[in-house]
């Protein structure tokens, strides 16, 4: 997959990412997942949460996205608690969980249309182009239940191409992708970081090709 329609990078997003975790601690069922964790996600950062299964990667990702309020400490967007500026924050970050939120009876285009409905500035043309780039051109009228798991994942990931947000929060986005898909997503992550965007990601996939990469290791403390 190659970029058929390069995005006008200067206009891609208007603000930059300034997300920070302050002394974040979380326990589940009397087990401490992580304690007093502090870090920042700034312009151009690619942060990979690493650690064994059950180390709390998804939990940390979700509380950084503002989906989970059951923790101690604070997550801030531009020095303001994300829960008190949630509407603002929600428009500046894109969250894609390991559940893809694809409705199987709808076509890829209809699914994509629903995904971007919070961003009215996204044009219908951009959606077509995005589907073309994830090599789903020609599948516009086919319900997603007839697509493979990898193709469905691409429909979900096509949002990365159309929503103008500086921060991407991605939970295992490489799942079910084939080799070409993996290469495409890696290139896209590199591009996003280079144009000043930021990525917070969990993945067992090695992202070492991207120089901006930082890792946060979870599951080390008791």
């Amino acid at each position: 997959m190659t970029r058929s329609a390069p995005v006008d990078e200067s206009k891609w997003f208007t603000t930059h990412c300034d997300l920070s975790a302050h002394d974040v601690s979380c326990e589940r069922d009397d087990r401490i997942l992580f304690e007093n964790l502090s870090f920042t996600v700034k312009k151009g950062d690619l942060i990979q949460l690493a650690g064994p299964n059950g180390a709390g990667k998804t939990t940390l990702l979700r509380l950084m996205a503002g989906l989970n309020q059951d923790f101690d400490g604070e997550v801030r967007w531009y020095d303001e608690n994300i829960q008190s500026c949630f509407q603002d924050y929600a428009r500046q970050r894109l969250y894609i969980g390991h559940l893809s939120a694809i409705k199987k009876v709808l076509t890829p285009l209809e699914n994509l249309r629903w995904f971007v409905s919070s961003w009215p500035e996204v044009s219908e043309d951009a959606l077509w182009q995005a589907l073309e780039e994830v090599t789903l051109a020609g599948y516009e009228d086919i319900p997603c239940q007839q697509l493979s798991a990898g193709q469905q994942r691409r429909v979900a990931l096509a949002r990365l191409l159309v929503t103008p947000t500086p921060l991407w929060i991605l939970d295992e986005p490489f799942t079910a992708l084939d080799k070409a898909g993996v290469a495409w997503l890696e290139a896209l992550l590199a591009l996003h970081v280079n144009r000043g965007g930021s990525v917070l990601i969990t993945s067992h996939h090695a992202l070492s090709d991207i120089p901006a990469l930082r890792q946060i290791e979870l599951g080390v403390q008791k």
Binding site: G66, A90, Y95, H98, A101, I102, K103
Partner: peptide, 17 residues
């Protein structure tokens, strides 16, 4: 049920609406 299972609910919450 479907919205909970396929992640749609998560996207509602993430959207801030």
């Amino acid at each position: 049920k479907a919205d909970v299972e396929d992640g749609t609910l998560e996207q509602w919450l993430a959207s801030g609406e």
